[in-house]
Write a protein that binds this DNA or RNA. Structure first.
Lengths: 248, 248
DNA sequence: CGCCCATTTGACAGCTTTCAAATCGCGTGG
DNA sequence: CCACGCGATTTGAAAGCTGTCAAATGGGCG
């Protein structure tokens, strides 16, 4: 096993809800997996596939999306180190959405059966996995509200806040200082806007000093003001208590 | 036990994915519960609550929703006989959204521990419950895409198609002939539109013969055309095979 | 019969999209 | 080292879908 176990970030996240003991952490780390390095833009899963493996993000970023009949794309979620994407698709049988790599990533593929067996062999692990899918669902619900009922500026700010906080909760940086390696077109696909309008809203947020921008990334400048402008309340992320302070 | 067990619709749904044997069905039916009749508009759960029970819909309709800072409401899902709402809230600890009754309903409240224990005692039940939360998540994803990337007319048509198919899958009617007891304001809150615009779009769908309307409800007139106008593909509902034919 | 709430309708405003063109960065090749 | 090319970002102007506001209509119920 390498100096740092590839699955460690994931186990850390599963462990953050305090269901697991040491033995169970070891059991998760001992799951069989195949490690792959995947370049940006590549697909991990396509709608209609019947995946038999689940993917754990080791490093890098990925996202899930759907495409409507008129060709518009809607991004459904963003995933980072420690996230298990596609537990959904693999358990449900047929993938109902696509999973694509955002920035070059290391991904661990774990056979579905191995995970499911472990989940029911050790209830604590089962609870942690279940909990994880429930948090996933909670984030989806917030996105429905975000896209459905917030104006463009608020919507975009909300996306930034969520990303910042999740990044920090995953131990990947500070919510006050980080980079978002997404194009404005991708931000548009997250928020149900057009790239042009995303550009204008970013400009507006920057003009008021809430964020700072370089060409290809965004940094939060004034967390409190941004969170206020975003109508952002972190409770839907169901972060463990010790990480709640971040949101202040 | 009454002639028809109250939990029967739920057990039927849990069973539809073919994980359960007879013993397990019985175990579900034997779960402890409290039955309540609740009038329209009443809340079952409020955001911030710490529910310790999960609610199974026996009859009637309910919906989940969030309210944004500016007071706009976004409905997140609609629930009918056989649905378990709020497994999410009760497992996650703190409710991140509201659950409200749409039409007078009978609801069975089951203690969370009883469900969780059973889920891990009998893996098949655990799988069925997990599967159910995953389907829930799949529907949320479709709603994100619906609200984010479809125009008003398509969006509304999509909502109608989903409702029709779920109603039929739950054994509550035919997808070609049913009523939707929602106000136009509620339809608006489902789709991220205004009531006025919902009115216009319903009129447009009716003018083209896709639906028929009475004052307080909608009926599908021409399923195929409506599904086409709605960009509707039922696969995200993950209906069991024997019910797939419905969607044709 | 009268009240109240939901539905309709019309006119107008406005947020967001659309369409196009210009600018900018950055990697590549000469 | 510098020009070139291409994708991403910016910007402006105009169109359009959806929202807003207000008033009228309609139905159900006490």
């Amino acid at each position: 096993m390498p100096a740092v176990a590839p699955l460690a970030p994931w186990v850390r996240k599963m462990d953050s809800w305090a269901f697991l003991n040491n033995e169970e952490r070891e059991a998760l780390l001992a799951l069989p997996y195949t490690l792959k390095t995947i370049e940006a833009h590549h697909y991990i899963v396509r709608e209609g596939d019947k995946p038999t493996q689940s993917c754990v993000m080791i490093s890098g970023l990925s996202y899930r999306h759907k495409v409507t009949a008129n060709g518009a794309r809607q991004i459904l979620s963003i995933h980072m180190s420690g996230d298990i994407v596609d537990l959904q698709n693999s358990l449900l049988g047929i993938a109902d959405h696509n999973v694509q790599i955002l920035t070059a990533s290391q991904v661990a593929f774990i056979p579905r059966e191995a995970i499911v067996e472990l989940a029911f062999e050790r209830p604590a692990i089962g609870k942690a996995l279940w909990y994880d899918t429930l948090v996933d669902g909670s984030i989806f619900r917030e996105w429905i509200a975000n896209v459905g009922r917030r104006d463009a500026r608020t919507r975009l700010a909300h996306l930034l806040c969520e990303y910042a906080l999740r990044l920090e909760a995953a131990g990947l940086g500070s919510h006050r200082e980080w980079e978002l390696p997404m194009t404005q077109e991708q931000l548009a696909d997250c928020t149900g806007l057009t790239p042009v309008h995303v550009n204008r809203m970013l400009k507006s947020l920057a003009n008021e000093g809430l964020i700072r921008r370089t060409r290809r990334s965004v940094t939060i400048n004034d967390w409190k003001s941004l969170a206020a402008a975003a109508d952002f309340d972190s409770s839907y992320l169901h972060l463990p208590e010790e990480k709640l302070a971040l949101a202040q």
